[in-house]
């Protein structure tokens, strides 16, 4: 049941994504890409969990994952903000 549940969530999320992303105009495609890229840094959640449950090796892998995912999140959101600031001013 659990498996079916998360599969349902996954499929519905793809439909939602499809729906909202097709509405983004070409002008904003680069910020869309870097912004959604930052969202894929959500792997940081998994990274934090694996520093705890992973044992010695798992902890270190999790630690590297935390660094990678943070680079992805922080860098992604900041650079997107930098770009969008330019689009806002007229």
């Amino acid at each position: 049941m659990d498996m079916i549940n998360i599969l349902t969530v996954f499929i519905l999320a793809i439909f939602v994504g499809n729906e909202i992303i097709t509405k983004v105009p070409p002008t904003l495609h680069t910020p869309l890409m870097s912004g959604s890229n930052a969202i894929s840094g959500i792997a940081i959640v998994g990274a934090i969990i694996s520093t705890k449950v992973g044992g010695e090796l798992g902890t270190w892998l999790g630690m590297v994952a935390v660094i990678f995912a943070t680079i992805n999140c922080v860098g992604g959101f900041m650079v997107t903000n930098r770009m969008l600031k330019m689009f806002k001013r007229k």
Binding site: I6, V9, F10, A13, I14, N18, L32, S36, S40
Partner: peptide
């Protein structure tokens, strides 16, 4: 993770 990943994947 599943939802966020799916959004980015679709994008």
């Amino acid at each position: 993770l599943i939802i966020s990943g799916a959004l980015v994947g679709a994008s």
